[in-house]
């Protein structure tokens, strides 16, 4: 079969992981009403995705695809453009972090770093949106400081959950199953 950077299976898998992010965001809401708490499952799925398809760009594909899905689903309060960029940037920043750290997400430090910085990508979008619309600096800063802390915490928890999920998958023989597939 023709060798490509991403195999068809890998592309389909990344697309379904993107759908899983949307489903987790909608169906698996925790009762917490803290901003950014959905990042727990979001980042965990990205971290697992980056290990299951261990190629640079995998997280970006998850990000862009989930961004398109979220835009079509009408998620987010600031319109489709903001939604799309928020989701896409989480994937792109996660990829960037993986590239900088040159590690894989089976390493807990890498997983937590990707979780935090990837999730902060979403925060970055909020900040940029504030700048573009020209919202008052004090108001933006106050809201953003709270959001920043919350995004860091939930990103880190997502990183840990992703790392724990990978460990459990490894122990459960998931990677032996994956080794059979192209």
């Amino acid at each position: 079969m023709k060798q490509r950077y991403f195999s068809t299976f890998q592309l389909i898998l990344l697309a379904l992981f993107s759908a899983l992010i949307i489903v987790a965001k909608i169906a698996l809401r925790t009762p917490l009403q803290l901003s950014g708490h959905s990042g727990i499952f979001w980042m965990a799925i990205i971290i697992v995705g980056a290990r299951v398809v261990p190629k640079l760009g995998a997280s970006s594909i998850i990000g862009v695809t989930s961004g398109l899905l979220a835009s079509f689903m009408g998620l987010g309060d600031f319109g489709a453009l903001n939604t799309f960029i928020s989701y896409a940037i989480v994937g792109v920043v996660s990829d960037l972090m993986l590239w900088i750290l040159r590690g894989n997400t089976e390493n807990v430090v890498v997983a937590i770093s990707v979780g935090i910085f990837g999730h902060l990508g979403k925060f970055l979008t909020k900040w940029l949106f504030g700048i573009i619309t020209g919202a008052p600096i004090g108001f933006v800063a106050l809201g953003l400081l709270r959001a920043f802390i919350s995004y860091v915490i939930f990103g880190a928890i997502g990183g840990i959950l992703g790392w724990l999920t990978l460990k459990a998958l490894k122990r459960a023989g998931f990677f032996a199953y994956m080794a059979e597939k192209r």
């Binding site: 389909i12 898998l13 379904l16 899983l20 698996l28 724990l164 459990a168 998958l169 998931f174």
Partner: peptide, 27 residues
Amino acid sequence: LVTNVGDLISLTVPAIVLTTKRAWAIT
């Protein structure tokens, strides 16, 4: 949530496995 984060794998692992199986079936 913080103290039980490890227990969330009871949700994430089956979800990842089922999603992967579905991706393979479609492939």
